[in-house]
Amino acid sequence: MCLAIPMTVKSIEGTKAVVESMGVEKIVDIALSPDIKINDKVIVHAGFVIEVLDPEAAREIEATWEEYTTLMGKEQ
């Protein structure tokens, strides 16, 4: 129900920020995530930042899945 994509924060001014993904820049509203910082990866929906990506969680899950696929691969 909700198309939202990860973008990187380039600059912040008041309640607005410029975010970028794949060379595309967009001005978005940051009222829902006012604590974002430059270079944060954020999730953008309908012109609003709705959440900040957690790089640590992303790394953790990658490691877990690597382990899992290796394990499952061996079982089969």
Binding site: A31, L32, S33, P34, I43, I50, E51, L53, D54, P55, A57, A58, E60, I61
Partner: peptide
């Protein structure tokens, strides 16, 4: 987990 926290986005819920 890279996006979804246990308690979500409290600021968004408050607004």
């Amino acid at each position: 987990t890279r996006v979804v926290r246990d308690d979500g986005n409290p600021k968004a819920l408050e607004i």
